[in-house]
């Protein structure tokens, strides 16, 4: 394999320019593709090529979005969904990160909780939601509980994996130089587990947002999912698509925000 090496000899000079050019191509192609799809969608709907009552059209969706905002309907429902999501998510992080780190650090703790956690991880947690509704009703509490359960598994497993990835030699060295258990944890284990742990937090956001909305869709009083369910049962498609897109965009934005934070904080990785 000598050829690639020779080719790479002159590469460093051009990589940064080539890289930015490539990412410009990427953004441009992505944008063109989105515009083409939107135009095709609009044309096929307004020309009657496909039944617009099923597929709606981009213009109708924009109109519906504006209506949802100006009528105050969104402002009425969004806070509840955000509240349920944030409380459930925060609880999962506050309990999940220490538990996961402890499980990664102490074998006995891991052995106690692993089977239960594993079962939770491979089960579609929304299957548990009917039980939560039976116990707590269709109000806010059952949604907080389902978000908590759904996010917890992801957070714990990533925190645990992060701790387990700690370099064993560094730990042995710290031990040899007389570092106590606490010092080892705070100075070596916790910092080196951070990137993987934060990646878990990011994955948890996406899962949590979807979970809270689907749970509201199953049964609820106020919230985005309840709106979706109402528009769905009256077959009012444009607002339905607006709300699904909104949820997707929220997950996408928070996710990429966390990824950016990740990158700037753990640049030394």
């Amino acid at each position: 394999m000598r050829t690639p090496k020779r080719k790479d000899a002159g590469a460093p000079l051009t990589t940064s320019r080539a890289g930015s050019q490539e990412s410009a191509v990427k953004v441009l192609t992505g944008c063109i593709s989105i515009v083409v799809v939107l135009v095709a969608w609009q044309v096929s709907a307004s020309s009657g090529l496909v039944d617009a009552s099923y597929t709606s059209s981009p213009l109708e969706i924009v109109k519906a979005a504006a209506e949802l905002v100006t009528s105050g309907e969104l402002a009425q429902n969004l806070p509840t969904t955000l509240f349920e999501f944030s409380i459930g998510y925060a609880l999962a992080v506050v309990i999940g990160v220490p538990l996961g780190m402890l499980m990664g650090w102490r074998l006995r703790v891991r052995q106690v909780f692993e089977p239960l956690l594993y079962a939770l991880y491979v089960t579609p947690s929304l299957a548990l939601f009917p039980i939560f509704v039976l116990v707590w009703g269709i109000g806010t509490t059952s949604k907080i509980a389902i978000v908590f359960v759904d996010v917890l598994a992801t957070v714990v497993i990533n925190a645990m994996a992060g701790v387990q990835e700690t370099d064993a030699r560094t730990l042995r060295m710290a031990h040899a130089f007389g570092a106590g258990q606490m010092a080892q944890f705070w100075k070596i284990i916790a910092p080196s587990a951070m990137p993987t742990t934060v990646a878990g937090l990011r994955l948890g956001v996406g899962r949590g947002v979807i979970t809270v909305i689907v749970a509201e869709l199953y049964g609820g009083v106020v919230g985005l999912g309840v709106m979706i369910s109402a528009y769905g049962s009256s077959f009012n498609v444009p607002p339905l698509i607006v709300l699904a897109l909104l949820a997707g965009l929220f997950g996408l934005i928070v996710g990429s925000l966390l990824r950016r934070i990740e990158r700037s904080v753990f640049r030394w990785e």
Partner: peptide, 10 residues
């Protein structure tokens, strides 16, 4: 990132 199930009525 979007809840596909939300589109279940459609």
């Amino acid at each position: 990132s979007s809840p596909v199930i939300a589109l279940f009525p459609l």
